[in-house]
């Protein structure tokens, strides 16, 4: 009772400046929520009708994408997006986590101090620059080594793996550094070697942080457009080898949006809906992971 009175009193004492600031914050928050809501609604409104017109099964499981002939199957793109993302996160994850272990546990401090800004710089490079790098280096290299045209699923995977490395490295390193020193001491005091301690205690203890890093990597990889468009080859087909020219969901939209009309245009929006659902699922997963970590720390 008393508390309530007191709270009322403080509220009344609010100065005009505070009043303005508080509402400014509120306004900003509302604006960002509105932006998300508008995008979501717009995407679903313009995308879902196409799914019904084409037929959900034909759209999602159809293997032929020929808009001029009225064939709108995006299965090749779904497969390509999923395969390239999974393999890129697999490769980038292993390399990234190992790098993080190196930086957190093995490297001398001066080297870590040098590496960390480099990693941060890598994270800030615009994706079109990565794409250019892929086009002028990775693609020719693959072409030379394999004898096929270099624009391929493999090029996409290599490029995506490189692009997600910085995220995975920095988040995993933070997670490893957050592991209490006492765990490490406890393990070493039992006669464990340094590498046993890393694999059996430190990495498991940093598990949820590393998982979050991987999920963020997946989000970045599946949504990446500009870089992969330059190296993928962009043929809408189900890949049968790493050297096939491929097209991801994102490429599909970016590639054709500028000239598409009517149902074709709607089908591209529908592709966006599918992508959106993927990313939403990832976000939910990430939320669950972080919440579980918070609960554990509490």
């Amino acid at each position: 009772m008393e508390e309530k009175l007191e709270r009322k009193a403080t509220r009344r004492r609010r100065t005009p400046a505070e009043f303005i600031m508080e509402n400014l914050f509120l306004l900003c928050a509302l604006a960002s929520i509105a932006a998300v809501a508008v995008i979501t609604v717009y995407l679903f409104v313009s995308g879902t009708p196409a799914i019904f017109k084409i037929g959900a099964k034909e759209f999602l499981l159809g293997t032929v994408w020929k808009p001029t002939e009225g064939q709108f199957g995006i299965l090749p793109m779904i497969i390509c997006s999923v395969v390239s993302t999974v393999l890129a996160v697999g490769a980038g994850g292993v390399i990234g986590v190992m790098t993080a272990v190196f930086m957190a546990e093995l490297a001398p401090p001066w080297l870590t101090r040098l590496l960390r800004p480099c990693v941060r710089l890598l994270a800030g490079i615009p994706s079109v620059v990565y794409g250019y790098f892929g086009l002028t280096l990775i693609v020719p290299l693959i072409a030379k080594l394999s004898g096929f045209a270099g624009n391929s699923l493999l090029a996409v995977i290599v490029l995506l793996a490189m692009m997600i490395l910085p995220t995975i490295i920095s988040i995993s390193e933070d997670a490893l550094r957050a592991v209490p020193r006492a765990y490490k001491e406890g393990s070493l005091a039992l006669g464990a070697s340094h590498s046993q301690t890393i694999f059996k205690v430190l990495l498991p203890a940093a598990r949820s942080g590393i998982l979050s890093a991987l999920v963020l990597g997946v989000g970045r990889a599946i949504g990446e457009t500009m870089a992969v468009i330059l190296v993928a080859g962009n043929t809408p087909q189900i890949p049968t080898s790493l050297f096939d020219s491929v097209r991801t969901l994102t490429i599909n939209i970016a590639f054709e949006m500028s000239y598409a009309e009517g149902l074709h245009r709607e089908a591209l929006f529908a592709t966006g809906v599918v992508l959106f659902l993927f990313i939403m699922a990832l976000n939910i997963l990430l939320n669950v992971l972080t919440r579980r970590r918070e609960k554990k720390n509490a």
């Binding site: 209490p180 006492a182 001491e185 393990s187 464990a192 070697s193 046993q196 059996k200 205690v201 554990k296």
Partner: peptide, 21 residues
Amino acid sequence: FQKPNPFPMSIFDNVAYGPRI
């Protein structure tokens, strides 16, 4: 150690840690 420092794993795995490694 001064502060108890069990590993964040099960009771069994904590005790089995040393023999396992």
